[in-house]
Amino acid sequence: MVFRCFVVCISLLLLAISAYAVEPVERLPDPAMEARARSISTELRCLVCQNESIDESHADLAHDIRVLVRERLKAGDTDAQATQAVVSRYGDFVLLRPPVKPATWLLWFGPVALLLTGLTGTLYWLRSRPAVVPPALSAVEQAELERLLKDDA
């Protein structure tokens, strides 16, 4: 119940400004800097709307973070520093691309490891296959076979 209420609250936040994604008023005058802001924004998660980036999100909070990123860029931050400004407030959770560190090695290298294991396993399976000995037919199947062959004739 408590949680439901919180969801209601978040949805209110979402509704506060129900505009779409990047808004003209937010844009920076310098197109190169604006492009940087856009590319940073696409990899930052909108916290209240899940798996949407702040660049795509309509949420009010996403708007705030977009503005923050642009402020940082205007103040002369590099892309990494601007991203860090958001991470320092909200943690690694805002990064849609999780950082590569021991805790995420399994995530990042798991797929490759699995593919290699799969390839090795398949090769092993191919090599270890026993010579072909088709299983003998059971008596019932033998009878069935003869009956069918006779039908065909």
Partner: peptide
């Protein structure tokens, strides 16, 4: 909401 943003508020 700037102070909220600085604190890392994501919902009240």
């Amino acid at each position: 909401g700037r102070t909220g943003l600085d604190f890392g508020v994501y919902g009240v």
